[in-house]
Amino acid sequence: MTTSRRVLVHPDKQALAGSVAARFITKTVDILDDRGTANIVLTGGSVGIAVLAAINESSARDTIDWSRVSFWWGDERWVPRGHADRNEQQAREALLDHIAIPATNVHPFPASDEGLELDDAATRYADELATHAEDGTELPHFDITFLGVGPDGHIASLFPHRSGIQVADRAVVSVRDSPKPPHERLSLTRPVLNSSERIWLVLAGADKASALGLAMAGASRDEVPVAGIKGRRRTVFFIDKDAAAEVPESLIAPSY
């Protein structure tokens, strides 16, 4: 299967969130028409949550049959269920609590107050992924995976100069040395993220420009983890003008 990578620049964070939200709604309707169901992997961060809020605010929100959509997460902070820092909680407040989606279609990571150790929680989420796998695989068919990018180039909870980005023998990794708090987290591994048909990286701000520029210039995934991310069909960087400062002009798509 051929794959492509594009960079789409928007004037500011608000325009970025609105544009990605509109594109998500249109694409998800198409995926449901084509496949019947859709599996979406969500991210956290201010821009990722802004996209979910923009989907919720869209007049086209309910053109999606949410009963046929399932949500997963790329990573999660090891804090109690309902904690304001959980990506799950932020996503629920921004979108999931406002749409007609069955509870069984929402697949959050385990939480720190559920009686599990961190490694056991990683195993449990890997088991849940396997339970919903496509025939002959160990993973669901991920249609769209949202990712943010940190100023250091990290994606999900896979950080530079940490072992997580190198793990390829399991679906979920437990993280104990995150350079940003909380230090304990759970994350999908790079091969799982890259199994997605489409990866949509959404980022804004001048502090992301250096990492994005390095990734586009061919930096190693160990130095800049986002450099190791590539969807099976398509990889799109949705960015604002500030984040585009170090991206070569030749890589920026004129439109979509």
Rank of each mutant, 00 (worst) to 15 (best):
D33T: 14
S195M: 08
K27I: 12
L42W: 04
V9E: 09
I25Y: 04
I64E: 02
H141N: 12
D240M: 07
F109R: 02
G205K: 00
P151S: 09
G218I: 03
R234K: 12
D207Y: 05
A171F: 06
I99M: 09
V175T: 08
G136D: 08
D62I: 07
A21S: 10
W66L: 10
K208P: 01
D242S: 12
D242W: 04
L147A: 10
A215H: 01
H141M: 12
N56L: 05
R23Q: 13
F71I: 09
L193Y: 00
S70M: 10
I229N: 01
I229C: 13
V149H: 01
N87L: 03
R185P: 02
Y125E: 10
W200D: 09
S178Q: 05
G45K: 03
D143M: 04
E114G: 05
S70R: 13
W73G: 00
H98D: 12
H161W: 12
K230F: 15
S4T: 13
G82T: 08
T123R: 12
L96F: 10
R221W: 15
S187V: 04
L129D: 05
S210A: 15
L52A: 11
H132V: 08
G36Y: 08
I31A: 08
L139C: 08
R86T: 10
E57R: 15
D34L: 13
R124Y: 10
W72R: 04
V149M: 15
A211V: 07
D97N: 12
S19G: 13
P248C: 08
I49F: 02
L118N: 06
M1Y: 15
A126N: 02
D222I: 13
D65E: 13
L52Q: 15
S187G: 03
D127Y: 04
R124F: 10
H107D: 09
D30H: 13
A100F: 12
S19F: 05
S67W: 05
F71D: 02
E138N: 11
R6S: 11
N194P: 08
T137E: 15
R77T: 08
A21D: 07
A21W: 04
I165V: 15
A91P: 03
G153I: 01
A122V: 06
T123E: 15
D242K: 14
F71N: 01
A243E: 07
A121T: 08
P151I: 01
R92I: 05
D119R: 13
A122D: 04
I155K: 00
S46I: 11
R6I: 11
L193S: 02
T189E: 01
L186E: 01
A111M: 03
V202E: 02
A121S: 07
D152W: 04
I229P: 02
I144H: 02
A54T: 02
I101P: 04
